[in-house]
Design a binder for these strands. Structure first.
Lengths: 138, 138
DNA sequence: GGCGAACTTTACGTTAACGTAAACGTTAGC
DNA sequence: GCTAACGTTTACGTTAACGTAAAGTTCGCC
């Protein structure tokens, strides 16, 4: 079968190419406990789970989180909720993180609105000037 | 008049308290060209404009931007659109920045959704267990 | 006029997130 | 059997964003 939708193993260089980062960075994420690839002898072999994690890492970086924060966040995805007390703490963590994300959304919305106002003002100014130039050309 | 809505000058310690940062950080932002306070002799005096700028700086930091990026962004607020060619470039910059912010919004929306799913799953699990415990108590 | 509080400059220290280079192992292909 | 591609570990270097400490100024107040 040639068409394999979800490739199941990756080399480090392959991942690096796909995500536009260096192999150094990928090994660094492993050092920091964000990835845990299998090994084939000495070589690292990344499975689908690592692939997903790396995607989450990159998304976290785009949002401005530190690697420590990112690790905390992606660890949330595979917590084993064995004890009830742990489960409550886990839910608290989730809620905190979600609140932070929501306030970040508000910050973005404000910024977008402000830059949007600037943009339309500038656009008006530009249209006006170009109209004047067109008129002068007639 | 006692009630002065928008205070017009600030000392550095005053600003530091208000924004929850150190005076060192404020001076550092000045070094990097993000602030430009007036002087009273040797001392820095911050006006309303600096106050606004500092708010924008903090917002930029919450969004994960570097100080360089933040400087570029807040400089957008006081560009003088003298030349038409400059004006076009300016509009391009604004659009780029807005697109970046929008994709950041998407990242946040995805993350919020995923964490939300996790949260309701956990909440269900918790309810189930507490129901079982209540039942056992009856 | 001495003292404390708030401010100044100068300079070295620190942490995160990699970059870069050296020196070495292994495997497919000619 | 050699080399090119790909991988490994180890270790020192670098940049951003401040922290921290030293040494001096200025000002209001008792």
């Amino acid at each position: 079968m040639a068409l394999d939708q979800t490739q199941s193993t990756f080399g480090i260089a392959e991942l690096a190419r796909e995500f536009g980062i260096t192999t150094r960075a990928i090994r660094f994420y492993e050092d920091k406990g964000l990835l845990n690839p299998a090994r084939d002898g000495q070589r690292r072999v990344y499975g689908p789970r690592d692939h997903v994690r790396l995607r989450l890492i990159m998304r976290g970086k785009r949002l401005g989180f530190s690697l420590d924060e990112i690790r905390e966040m992606i660890d949330l995805y595979d917590v084993d909720p064995s004890e009830v007390s742990q489960l409550k703490l886990f839910i608290d963590k989730l809620q905190l993180r979600r609140e932070q994300l929501r306030s970040q959304q508000e910050d973005i919305a404000e910024t977008l609105a402000e830059l949007g106002r600037l943009e339309s003002q500038s656009q008006d100014l530009l249209n006006e000037r170009e109209a004047r130039r067109t008129k002068a050309a007639v």
